[in-house]
């Protein structure tokens, strides 16, 4: 099977440029591609259209790129907990499109799966429905279209050289969907494993969707809101 490994984040992200659309996996800070985000901050590319559920949180994750002024457009579902985004949105520095989270994930899935559109009741009768075709089924629905991107940066717990991926716990979230939807999917992993090390039945995203993969390092894996029973 084709070897898609790169030796570093710098090599794996060598062809990013100003003005790209960029999907980034993660829910809050859970499962975010830390190394790729750090590399994009280092490169300093600008005018990014970021597509991510939260666009970072608490000053971390994609909020690093927000603070650098590298993001000009954002498509996301939730701004709460991200003061950098709320501030830049209200100041008109970043153009934000809010998408209901289920519609957001399904639009990304649709892009990867070749679905040209779908009807959903979500958002009917709200601001989200403005300008969209409506159709009556058992209840009124609106037409939503797929969401594509030039690049996706995602993180998996384990992956092999072909790009077969396995995600840990709730770190999976949007990552396998984004991996299917982008033209170029760049994966960083906690652990790069030999082919066959992940049982074939347990692969969460088959490697056919992945173009590049590299061994990540120095993960912070920040917990945003620690709550304990003890």
């Amino acid at each position: 099977m084709k070897d898609k490994t790169f030796s570093s984040s710098q090599e794996a992200l060598h062809d990013l440029r100003d003005g790209i659309s960029l999907m980034s996996g993660g829910f809050g800070l859970c499962g975010i591609p830390e190394n790729s985000i750090d590399e994009i901050a280092r490169q300093g590319i600008r005018d990014i259209h970021a597509i991510s559920n939260n666009i970072g949180n608490s000053g971390r994750g994609l909020a690093i790129l927000l603070k650098n002024g590298q993001i000009s457009r954002a498509t996301c579902s939730y701004v709460g907990g991200n003061p950098d985004l709320e501030q830049q949105m209200l100041a008109g520095q970043v153009e934000v499109t809010l998408v209901p989270q289920g519609t957001f994930s399904e639009r990304i899935r649709a892009a990867g799966m070749g679905i040209r559109g779908f009807y959903t009741p979500t958002g009917y009768g709200t601001l989200v429905a403005e300008g969209k075709e409506a159709k009556e089924f058992d209840k009124p629905c609106i037409l939503e279209l797929p969401l594509h991107a030039d690049f996706a940066i995602i993180k998996a717990e384990r992956g092999d050289a072909f790009g077969n991926l396995w995600f840990k716990e709730t770190a999976r979230n949007f990552s396998p969907l984004m991996g299917m939807a982008a033209k170029v999917t760049i994966v960083e992993v906690e652990e790069l494993v030999p082919l066959g090390a992940i049982p074939a039945e347990d692969i969460h995203l088959p490697g056919i969707f992945v173009q590049r993969i590299y061994q990540g390092s120095n993960y912070r894996n920040d917990i945003e809101i620690p709550v304990y029973a003890d």
Binding site: G28, C30, P226
Partner: peptide
């Protein structure tokens, strides 16, 4: 909730709490 011994950074709810 998890205990301090069992907490995992990849195991959260929609409120981003462990």
């Amino acid at each position: 909730r998890p205990t301090r011994a069992t907490v995992s950074p990849t195991l959260i709810n929609a409120g981003k709490e462990t």
